[in-house]
Design a protein around this nucleic acid. Structure first.
Length: 574
DNA sequence: AAAAAAC
């Protein structure tokens, strides 16, 4: 019954209602500035503009400012599950003395589920409430964790009370610690020297989509493990062999791994997961998308312990991924910090028009000819493009350029990460492999050299900056080809408080049919819609058309040289 | 919608 309710609220209707509530929560702020007109892209409050995502929302937008005090009423109208909205708008009292640079802005927190445990105000409470060891708390403070972030203050008690959890919290807000701390607390102590029959084998498992992220999580584990003989294994080619040694395997406390590595070990019979009590999917939506799903399901199925606790974490969780996740969890609690699929406002975002692919290199060189804050993280769409861009930048005299993608060897990847961590890389060119979870503290600027292929990708990529309360800057190049998805990303900018030129907002939202026809139609669509914009944007329009001409000429020359394959050939290969 | 990543 419970599960059914949870599953049934993934639709658009539910979301719409939920965001109407969000608006009323934000409303108090909008009392002093007069009316914010939707037509004015510059002053529109980001949170209101979310409604551009859906139609028929005009009526309810101006709900009065009483919302903040009356979440309970709305609770009843939306769903019968408990839903609670906590406004954590006030700044933390302990902040003044501590390092001013890393004060994370408080964000609204929404919880949903039965009997949600009370949040903690500080880590010290954990000692009284859950009898957490002093050593573990010491390890926290020694590693610079002073005050719990939003997701930590809610997530830690939930997990400590053995509940399943779906946690959605923006990039750089401390999700890793939210699951590691309760995990260590619940495990209590490392496997005893003389194993207890019946409790042999791995007790906790953390899955992440990339090796680099697994490694980073492993490092975080080591921080919390200081002073005790926890056996924590970063699963890789090398450790797979040692773990087939029964003696080692039986005494392992925590495994951190990518999915396929686990599947391989399960299938070879070298790994058993029947004693796993805590399972975490980090970057859950990525792990639950089509390429990873069957692998993850196999691993989950192998965790057969009756008191298995499952938790999923991400900054983004599209409806389909959420449905799958909720189906896996048992009487789950869902916690959302801030707005789902939305970057932190402290990342200032801009969209930069580069007519076509050929114009991107000059554009990025121009960017680097101005002062910039290294390290800069640059994203490309493919591995070859990452390598060649790195090469081009080196040729053009940009210092300390680095490259990282999954086509490189493990050693090359590791070395690149090391240089990044040491601050030796000033410009890091990479693919989607770096988009999620990676925490390079110094990154102040992200450049999307190639347009991201989804809102989720965008949110995660730019989330490599603006972490732990620091400010960040994100620049996204777009070409004529990217037009169909430009508005999608533009709306994300608006939601998170960045400004978008009016002419982009006036672009039509591409219909599904149009997208299908994309190959040939889209450029024309874009130019046409550009024509509809006002005279004030005449220059941009001209640029776009010029860019389009260049592209056409190039395409023609390519076509005549036989380099472009014709998809109308009708041989049915696709 | 489409590439990347996982061994």
């Amino acid at each position: 019954m419970e599960a059914f309710k949870l599953l049934s609220r993934g639709g658009a209707k539910f979301d719409k209602q939920r965001f109407q509530r969000d608006v009323s929560l934000f409303d108090p702020k909008s009392t002093h500035p007069e009316n914010k007109k939707q037509s004015d892209g510059k002053t529109l409050p980001a949170e209101l503009d979310f409604f551009k995502y859906s139609q028929n929302v005009g009526e309810k937008r101006k709900t009065s400012s009483k919302g903040k005090t009356e979440p309970k009423k709305r609770k009843l109208e939306s769903a019968s599950d408990d839903e609670d909205i906590q406004d954590l708008e006030e700044s933390p009292k302990s902040a003044p003395g501590s390092s001013s640079s890393s004060t994370l802005p408080r964000q609204r927190v929404t919880t949903k589920g039965s009997n949600v445990p009370t949040r903690i105000e500080n880590f010290g409470e954990l000692k009284d409430r859950y009898n957490i060891s002093s050593r573990l708390l010491d390890n926290l403070t020694q590693n610079g964790y002073i005050d719990p972030t939003g997701i930590q203050s809610y997530g830690v008690p939930i997990l400590l009370e053995s509940r399943d959890l779906a946690a959605i919290s923006p990039t750089g807000t401390g999700k890793t610690l939210s699951y590691l701390l309760p995990m260590f607390a619940a495990l209590g102590s490392p496997h005893p020297k003389t194993p207890v029959p019946g409790s042999l084998g791995v007790r906790a498992l953390i899955i992440a989509p990339t090796r680099e992220l697994s490694h980073q999580i492993y490092n975080e584990c080591l921080k919390l493990a200081q002073g005790r003989k926890w056996r924590i294994v970063l699963f890789s080619k090398a450790t797979a062999n040692t773990l087939s040694d029964r003696d080692v395997r039986d005494k392992t406390d925590i495994i951190v791994s990518t999915p396929l590595r686990l599947v391989a070990s399960l299938q070879s019979g070298g790994l058993e997961l029947h004693n796993v009590r805590h399972l975490v999917l980090d970057e859950a939506d990525r792990l639950l998308d089509s390429e990873f799903l069957s692998q993850v399901e196999e691993v989950v199925a192998a965790c057969t312990h009756t008191s298995l606790q499952k938790a999923v974490f991400s900054a983004t969780l599209p409806a389909n991924a959420e449905n799958i996740a909720m189906g896996m969890l048992r009487d789950p609690i869902r916690v959302v910090v801030g707005l789902k699929d939305t970057p932190l406002p402290l990342i200032s975002q801009t969209l930069t028009y580069t007519a076509d692919d050929a114009s991107k290199l000059p554009a990025i060189l121009t960017y680097f000819s101005h002062p910039y804050d290294p390290p800069v993280l640059v994203f490309t769409s493919t591995q070859p493009r990452a390598s060649s861009l790195a090469g081009e930048l080196v040729l053009n005299g940009i210092p300390n350029v680095d490259c990282l993608h999954a086509g490189m060897t493990d050693k090359e990847r590791g070395d690149a990460i090391d240089r990044m961590r040491k601050g030796e890389s000033w410009v890091m060119i990479s693919t989607e492999v770096m988009a999620r979870g990676m925490d390079f503290k110094g990154v102040r600027q992200v450049i999307n050299y190639d347009f991201p292929t989804s809102v989720q990708s965008y949110v995660h990529r730019i989330g490599r900056t603006g972490r732990a309360g620091k400010e960040g800057k994100a620049v996204t190049f777009f070409t004529d080809q990217d037009a169909p998805f430009l508005k999608l990303i533009a709306n994300v900018l608006l939601q998170s408080g960045s400004t978008v030129p009016d002419w982009i907002l006036k672009l039509p939202k591409p219909s599904k049919i149009k997208r299908k026809l994309m190959g040939k139609v889209k450029r024309v669509e874009f130019i046409n819609s550009a024509r509809r914009i006002g005279r004030s944007d005449a220059i941009k329009k001209r640029d776009m058309i010029a860019g389009s001409k260049r592209r056409k000429e190039k395409a023609a020359s390519l076509e005549s040289s036989g380099a472009v394959k014709d998809d109308d050939s009708g041989d049915g290969g696709v």
